[in-house]
Structures are given as C-alpha cells and as structure tokens.
Design a protein around this nucleic acid. Structure first.
Lengths: 199, 199
DNA sequence: ATTATCTATAGATCTATAGATAATGC
DNA sequence: ATTATCTATAGATCTATAGATAATGC
C-alpha cells in the first residue's frame, strides 16, 4: 500500500509543479514553492524527486502521455477535426497551455534541460501532422504544398496562436483562428485541383 | 563628451544583455554575467541601469526601434515581400531571434515585467499585418478570410516557425516555410474568386 | 559638481546533502 | 528494513544599497 500511496504523492507533486511552472517558468519555479503546495517541506519533496531536473522530466513525461492518447483512426492517424477539438479543449485550460508555452520558450536558451525533449518532440509532431494531412487531403494541398511542407506551418500556427491567446485572451479566439487556418488548407486552394477524398 | 561616452556604454550594456538573455532568459540572466561581458563589476553596471528591470526595458525598446524602421510603401504599410526578407534576415541572426523567443515564452508567466510590452506589441503587430494583407491582396483572401482574420495566423506562423527553427535549424527551413505560408494566402484559394490587385 | 567605477555588504533565495525520527510492512 | 518526513546546514547565487575614490567638465 505504501507503493500506491507513494505514486499518488508523486502525481500530486507533478501536478503542483505544473502549476508553479505555469506561474514562474522552470528556472523561476523553486522546489519550496512546489513543496508548499502539497504541504511538504522542500527537503521532503526531494525524497520523491531527487533533483529539480528529475521533477521536470516527470512533468514532461506527463505531457507525453497526455496528448498521445485519444482518438486515432483505423490507420493510426488522427482525424483533423480531432485536432480542432484539441484546440478547443486547450482553450479551456489556460494553465496547461501556459506551462508548456513557458517551457518551450525557455527551452531554446542555453543548456536547458527540456531542450532535447522539445527537439525530439517537434520532429515527431511534424511527422505526425504530415500523416494527418495526407490522410485527410491526399498528396496535393493548396499553394502547391505537400503534407510535409504544410506540417511545420500547422505546428507553428498551433504554438503561435497559444502565445497570442495567453497574452490577450479577449482579443484572440484561438479555436476560431485555428479553424481559419484549416480553411486555408482545404483543397481548392491556389494550384489546387480539387482533390478526391482519400479512399 | 561624457554624455556621448555614457550613451555608448549603455548601448554596449544593452547589447551584452541581449546576448545573456538569449543564453539564459531574463530570469536566468544575472547582472553579473552582463557586467562581466562589458568589463564592469555588477555594481558598476547598476550605475547605468538602476535595476534589472530598467535594463530589460532598454532591451525591449531596442527591439521596438529595430523592427519599426525600414521599407514602408507610399501608404505607410510594408510590402509583403519585405516581410519575407525580414524572415530571411532573421534566419541569419539566431541570437536576436533567440533573445526575443525566450522573452516571449517567459512573458506569459505570472507578473513578468515584459508581459505588458508583448501584449501591446501583438495588438499592434496584428493590426499592422492586417493592413499589409489588405494592401497586398484586398478584402477577400482564400478560405473566405478577411485580412483581420488572417493576421493572427500570419503572426502565429512567424513566431511558431522561430521556435521550431531554433530547436532544430537543420530540419526547419524557416524562410522557405514562410514562403509556403504566403502561397496559401495568395488569391485563388478556396472560395477565392481571383482578386484584382488593389489600385 | 558630476560621472564612472570600485569594495563591502545586507538580506534573500536556492539546491542539495546529512542525519534524525517516526511509522509501516515483512 | 523501508518509507516518509523533518531539522539543520553548506555552499552558491542574486539584487540592491552605502559609501569611497578618482577623473572630468564647468
């Protein structure tokens, strides 16, 4: 039973870390602040995660799990509407979005412990987005783009909109803007011979 | 002459701060690190900028100046090719891009001193991008978008591509990707009755 | 006088280690 | 024994203030 209690405690701590990172970034997040939020001393927290970086790793793994699950289709790719609904879901959870936007921003600075994680993840995500686009629209997209060339744009729009929305939620309707971007990608665009839907 | 010497010194310090922020973010940038880079003691630096935040403000003002100047056209708006060439220019200056990407990321966290700056700036930039799009393509864009609705997407693509490129410059061709996005916006897209060029 | 710098230092933090104590599980 | 916590504390930092010293400009 101690085993299970311990896992709960760790999950609690990770949740608290998510919050503190959202508020202060990783460098600004102190172990004491996280510990306080779960009613532990700073040293008590280090019993569960021996270093600050170990805690960050747990936070990043949590995310991996978080947006890996969910509705794939028969061939393993997501449907594109699912992506739109993920954006809507995110729009209801500013905290999580803020945590990972803050981490992404920090991760480009020198020797940041999350840098490798994000580099790898974006490679994956671009490939995954290309697969989704191909499954949805086939090989030829508006503007003469291929799925592989559109994928980084799709990812960029997702991330970029998050920053604008976090800074000024009243001025930026993130889900609507994302839908607008999808409208640009739908067949019939510049160059776009209308596409037959994939079989 | 002391006046002029002083202005030079301040400019030197701001330049050093840009570098240190690129490497460690604002919260991670210590005054000592900046001071060392210009051959001053930490306390000597505080003679020029009385607080760390005052130095940050100077850094942000520098940027304002930096990308406000340059080629507008007769009605005061930029031409869209100029935007593409700004992206090419940025692709040769990872340092600057990294500084402001790191600051943008941090700025969404609680009470960050650059938050207001970025909020205001994005409002401005969206308006400015809408004007550029209108001047270039008129009122109706592909996908049934208006310039106002396309503007946040354009800004998002600019920012989002920067993160992907900073994390993995060999995998992301930022200027080419931006050109791809512009291709999506050119008339003739979905919905797009071909547009007459604006008078 | 003002400007540019320095040394000294106060007062806060922060991460991590060492070692004690109590409770739980075999 | 192991697990969960705590107190104490080392050792680094960090920002900012106080006050000295030297040089420069009227």
């Amino acid at each position: 039973m101690a085993r299970a209690r311990s896992a709960e405690r760790r999950a609690e701590i990770v949740r608290a870390a998510l919050e503190v990172i959202a508020e202060r970034g990783y460098r600004g997040a102190s172990l004491s602040a996280v510990a306080e939020r779960v009613g532990l001393s700073q040293q008590g927290l280090l019993h569960y995660f021996p270093t600050k970086e170990a805690l960050l790793v747990a936070v990043l793994e949590e995310r991996d799990q978080w947006d890996t699950g969910g509705g794939t289709r028969s061939d393993g790719t997501w449907r594109i509407e699912l992506l739109a609904s993920l954006v809507e879901y995110n729009a209801m959870r500013p905290g999580i979005v803020q945590t990972f936007s803050a981490l992404l921003g920090e991760s480009v600075t020198g020797g940041h412990p999350a840098r490798d994680f994000f580099t790898r993840r974006y490679t994956q995500v671009r490939a995954s987005m290309a697969a989704i686009l191909r499954a949805e629209y086939g090989e030829r997209l508006p503007g003469g783009l291929t799925p592989e060339r559109a994928a980084p744009l799709l990812v960029a729009v997702l991330d970029g909109l998050q920053y604008q929305w976090l800074l000024d939620p009243d001025s930026v309707d993130m889900p609507a803007a994302f839908e607008d971007f999808l409208a640009l990608l739908r067949p019939g665009g510049p160059d776009g011979a209308p596409q037959p839907p994939p079989p």
